[in-house]
Deep mutational scan, measured.
Amino acid sequence: KELVLVLYDYQEKSPREVTVKKGDILTLLNSTNKDAWKVEVDDRQGFIPAAYLKKL
């Protein structure tokens, strides 16, 4: 599985998104959309803007 590093805090703005903190390391589920990547956070799945993430 692929991991990503969170570069900036992000507060979810819709039910399809998830809230993350800078420095979190998350499982990347889908990065086919260049604008928003799907990740898993504490058994929740949701989207975060790709600009907030860096592949490890």
Rank of each mutant, 00 (worst) to 15 (best):
L26K: 00
G23T: 03
D43E: 11
K34W: 10
K22V: 06
L29V: 11
A36Q: 14
K13R: 14
K34L: 10
N33V: 05
K1A: 11
N33Y: 10
V18M: 13
D35I: 11
Q11H: 14
L53Y: 01
T19P: 03
D43S: 13
D42L: 12
L26D: 01
P49V: 05
G46Q: 07
R16T: 14
Y52L: 12
G46L: 15
L26Y: 04
G46R: 05
K13T: 13
V41H: 09
D24R: 09
Q11W: 14
G46M: 15
V6N: 00
E17M: 05
L29R: 03
D9N: 07
G23C: 08
K1T: 11
K22R: 12
V4H: 00
L5Y: 09
R16M: 14
S14Y: 10
Y8W: 13
W37G: 00
K1N: 10
L53G: 04
S14W: 09
L53D: 03
L28G: 00
L26S: 00
G46C: 14
V41L: 10
T27L: 14
E2W: 12
I25G: 02
L29A: 03
I25N: 00
L7S: 03
W37Y: 05
Y10M: 01
L26C: 10
I48Y: 01
L7M: 09
K55H: 07
R16W: 15
L7W: 02
L26E: 00
L29Q: 02
K34C: 14
K1D: 08
N33F: 10
S31R: 06
A36H: 15
P49T: 04
E40T: 07
Q45M: 10
L3D: 02
Y8G: 07
V20T: 03
I25M: 04
K38C: 15
L28R: 00
N33H: 10
P49L: 06
V4N: 01
D42F: 10
F47E: 07
P49M: 04
R44S: 05
N33W: 08
T27Y: 11
L26H: 05
A36D: 09
A50C: 11
V6M: 01
L26A: 06
S14L: 08
K55Q: 07
S31Y: 08
K1P: 12
D43F: 09
V6D: 00
I48T: 02
D42G: 15
E17L: 05
K13Y: 06
L29K: 03
G46S: 07
V18A: 05
K13C: 10
L5K: 05
Q11E: 13
D24N: 07
R44I: 08
E12N: 07
A51S: 14
D24T: 11
V6K: 00
K34M: 12
L53I: 04
V20Q: 00
Q45L: 07
D24G: 03
A36S: 14
K1G: 09
L3T: 07
A50R: 11
L53K: 00
W37V: 02
D43C: 13
L7D: 00
T27E: 06
T27N: 08
Y10F: 06
V18I: 15
K21C: 12
V39H: 01
A36R: 14
K13D: 06
K13I: 07
S14G: 13
V39Q: 00
I25A: 00
I48R: 02
N30V: 08
L5E: 09
K1R: 14
D35S: 10
E2R: 12
F47M: 07
F47G: 02
K34F: 10
T32H: 12
E2I: 14
Y8D: 11
A36K: 13
K38D: 03
G23Y: 04
K13L: 12
W37R: 00
K54D: 08
V41P: 01
K13W: 07
K22E: 06
A36V: 15
P15E: 11
S31L: 03
S31H: 09
Y52C: 14
S31I: 04
T32D: 15
K22S: 07
L7G: 01
P49A: 04
I48N: 02
L3E: 06
